[in-house]
Amino acid sequence: MKMQAQSQDSTPFVQLRNASLAYGGEGQQLLAVDDISMSIEQGEFIAIVGPSGCGKSSLLKLVSGLHPALKGEVIVDGKAVTSPISICGMAFQNSTLLPWRTTLDNVLLPLQIVQPFAGNFRRHRREYVEKARHLLASVGLLEFEKKYPWELSGGMQQRASLCRALIHDPRVLLLDEPFGALDAFTREDLWEVLQTLWVEKRPTVVLVTHDLREAAYLADTIYVCSPRPGKIVSRNEMHFPRPRSLETTFEPDFVDTVQLLREKIARH
């Protein structure tokens, strides 16, 4: 299964070429990820798994342009990434919703910032509200649109956070352990929600997680990361037919794959 990421017929949408990222100033730099190369096709769903502290989140900072690469190159949509790219949506373990905004207003936030939406927000407000409500409805939150985030359960907050990440139709969706703080039942519900949203909108997704079942359920391709400084140690394609359901996760093939991934992580 281990193979070098190669571009196939089309040029990949997201490309990392020998990219490294370090924190800290001159002299005492701490290398978080080292010499990472990967290619992600447009509309592909990839997951990055690995032990904690292996620089998984740093990889997202590279792709989003929030942190520049120390060495190597990051290319998104044919352009080298040097500053934050506004075609991405992000969601974190912590829902980071604004407590003074209702759920609906939280989802609308990116449209007040990202161009061209921000420029005509007032004029198109009604249309944008409809768009947000449609998105909320698709994750089952419509009746909570007027509620504040602190009135929602953890799972509902994450649903709203996903809506916020997707409202401006980003071409890249970056997810940093979005379901890490949820209980098992809620988490599995949200796998399904995320899969549905992805099928509908087909953004390119980079999911960072340490839940191997989650990665195997959601992703087309799983990259396994080594401990710090993080390197890609294996690339694994998931061929389970979609849409995947919770039943999929109990099939022997799925269980074996998860077991195999676990061994790969343990080996490093």
Binding site: K61, S64, G65, L66, P84, I85, S86, C88, G89, M90, F92, N94, T96, L98, W100, L109, P110, Q112, I113, V114, Q115, R164, H168, L174, D176
Partner: peptide, 29 residues
């Protein structure tokens, strides 16, 4: 302001002034 929240806004291309206005001011209230 939570660093993640700052990241969300920066990744959307928000300027420092926009982050201050949309997030900084309200959370300082």
């Amino acid at each position: 302001i939570e660093p993640e929240l700052r990241d969300v806004l920066r990744s959307l291309g928000a300027s420092r002034l926009q982050i201050l206005w949309r997030v900084g001011m309200p959370s300082a209230m």
